[in-house]
Structures are given as C-alpha cells and as structure tokens.
Computed example of a mutant assay.
Amino acid sequence: MTDVTADQVTAIAAGYDEDPANSMSLRADAYTEPKWYAIDQQAIFARTWQWICHVEKLTQPGSYVAATVAGMPVVVVRDRRGGLRAFYNVCKHRAHELLSGSGTTRTIVCPYHAWTYDLGGSLVGARQTDRMETFDKTEICLDQVQVEEFCGFVYVNLDPTATPLAEQAPDLAADITRRAPDIADLTHAKRLYYEVETNWKNVIDNFLECYHCHVAHKEFVSLVDMETYDVKTHGIWSSHFADAGTSENTAYDVSDATVTEHAVWWLWPNTCLLRYPGRGNFMVFQVWPDGPGRTLETWDFFLESTELNEAEEQSVQYIDEVLQVQDIDLVESVQRGMGTPAFNQGRIIYDPERAPGLSEHGVHHFHGLVLDAYRALAGDQSPS
C-alpha cells in the first residue's frame, strides 16, 4: 500500500480551482510519477465500479467471465438460481487463480490442487482432507466482490462499502436507454486492443474534450455537426451529444444510417460508452492503467449482428486506422512533454455558453473527481 498525506494531495492539487474558468489542469507529476500511479490504483480503481462485459456473456447458470481490476484477479459467475456472483479469482488453498477467460462450468475447480467450489463460492471438495479432523470445508468460501447489472452490462467494485452504481449515477441508465433503446438486443461483434505509451489520465483528458477536434480530427468534424456538440457533467459521469451522420463525410458511409446522433457517456473513472451514426450500435471504450506511462485500451463493438455490413466495416476501420491513430499520437506526445521541465500544468479552456463542444469543463470535472479520490484516500490513512 502506498501512503499519501493530506499535504501531498494539497501539493498535487495546487492550481486547480473549483471554478473551471479560473482553473489549471492537474499537475504533471500526477501523470508521470510512479507514486501517483500506485495511488490511482488504490484511491480510484479499487473503489469504483468497473465494466466487465455485456450481460449476454452471463446468461446461463455456470457462465463466467474472469477479469483483472486494480491489479486484482476477479471472476463473475451466474449461479444456479440465476443470480450474479463475483469473487476474487483466488483459491483459498494456495492462492492459485481459479478460472481464466470466459465460458461455462458446473463447479469452480482450481487447476493447481483441484479444490472445488460451487457457484456460490462455497468449498465442496478438497482432496485428501476427509481424515483431517480439524478440516471443516463448510468454513471455507471464496471472498466475494460487489457485482451489479446496469443498463445491460455487468460491473464489479472491489470496495465492499461502495453504494450501488445506480445510486451513484442516477439517471444515467435512463439516459442511455432513451437514446439507445435497442441496447439489450445488440450482440458483441468485435474487439480492438491497443497498448499506448501514456498515463491513463491523459487518455481520459483527451476523450473528454473536443477542443482538439477541428485541429486533429478532420474526418470526425465532417461526421459530426459541431454546432450542435454539447458537453454536460453529472456527478460521476458526463455526456457528449451532437447531430451526426446526416450527410456525406470523410469518415465512413452513413447513407443508410438509422442512428443519426453522436452520443457519448463517460462513467468515472475509465469507462467510455458510445453510440455512433450507422446501424444500431453501442461501443465500450475502456482505459486501463498499466504503469505511470503506459495504458491498455479496448474497444468493444455491440451491433445488430456479429456479421458486420460494409458500412460497419468502414466505421470500425475509421476508428481503428484513423481516429485511434490520431488520438494515440496526441496522448503519447503529451506524455513525452509532461516528462520535461518545460511543463507543469496548463490552463483549462472554459466557454460552455458560446461553444460547449470546445470547452474543457468535462476535463475539469474529471480532475475534480481525481482529487476527491486522492483526498478520500489521504483521509482514510490519517491517524485516528
């Protein structure tokens, strides 16, 4: 565990102002120093709701998905009664990981010594223990993790005291289902994967503002009507909406689009939910820290069919070969710049009345949540 003091949080927050019109960004050390990477894992990722998968992967009793959250192995399973369960994916015997990937199983069997657990996490079998008078398998159970089904997706939270996601983000599910009413009927069609040489917060900063779009994303601004681009913040989430896909553009073919809106919901801290112009679709862009200057990214595409039509192939190609290439170049350059003595922090650009799509109040909102998380951790570590 990495200790953090209130004085250290005050220092890293220097320059940040609750009023975005008067605020600077987070200081560069928060993006470059190993100490703050470790604090991010403890203060943020170990205490927030993390997206795991679409509920379609966990429909049958015994279906499971293994994942890693804040460096911790976890597994989500559907039990015999139809409920969702999540556990640390760790055997209580010698700590071997129990399940990998995804699939279906009748019981959870450790591949090391074959200790066997039922789908509720209780130990039901342990080889060579039947004559051990002091061994009581009824006392042994996998450690549970909070799990929640939210708007057609499955999330987990390592914090046993965390309030439900639906309470933390009121109105988010209603907003998503209003704009994407077909979300439950979509199916996973494709995943893209990226390794990026930058801090994860740089990726989120870049995602949460379109001040750079006219400069760096010529194709995107031909797809989206930037005059209608609107960014709003809502507690632990923010939204980006704009009319889109209504005319010929340089990104991809939208001539047969039934979705004519660019819709984005960012959920604190690292889950980005999107709906682009085209046939019925929903995307999840997830951002995982993998070191002070390294990030892993996944794009999951949920479409009407696992078979992409020509326009969908074009849209995926646009995201993979154009948009992502542009954004990765940007955030990797930012990381290099933050490692120099020439940069400490920059001014937040704030103009939501005249140009809400170009204002950086979404970035400022994110930075406030980061600093709140740091303060909460420092408070928890203070001597009582």
Rank of each mutant, 00 (worst) to 15 (best):
G152P: 01
A311L: 05
Q335N: 12
D175S: 14
T134Y: 06
G71D: 02
K218T: 14
I176C: 01
M226W: 15
I176F: 05
V154L: 09
R47D: 10
G280N: 15
E219C: 10
T104K: 09
N157T: 11
P164Q: 12
H217R: 03
V363K: 12
H214N: 13
E304G: 01
A184K: 08
N22T: 03
V4D: 01
N89Q: 06
C213Y: 09
S63P: 11
M226P: 03
A174E: 09
L274I: 03
D372M: 07
A21Y: 10
M132L: 13
Y31T: 04
L371W: 01
N89V: 09
Q317K: 03
E353Y: 12
Q60E: 14
P356A: 11
T116F: 06
A162K: 02
Q286M: 11
T104Q: 11
Y112P: 08
A126K: 12
D159I: 03
G245E: 04
D290M: 15
G15F: 15
V109Q: 09
A376F: 04
R81P: 03
Q50S: 06
V145S: 04
E167N: 15
E332S: 11
M1Q: 07
W237N: 15
D175N: 13
E167G: 11
T5Q: 05
Q50W: 05
D243K: 14
A38Y: 07
P73D: 05
Q42G: 04
A46D: 00
V325A: 15
A173R: 07
I348H: 10
V221S: 07
T298N: 13
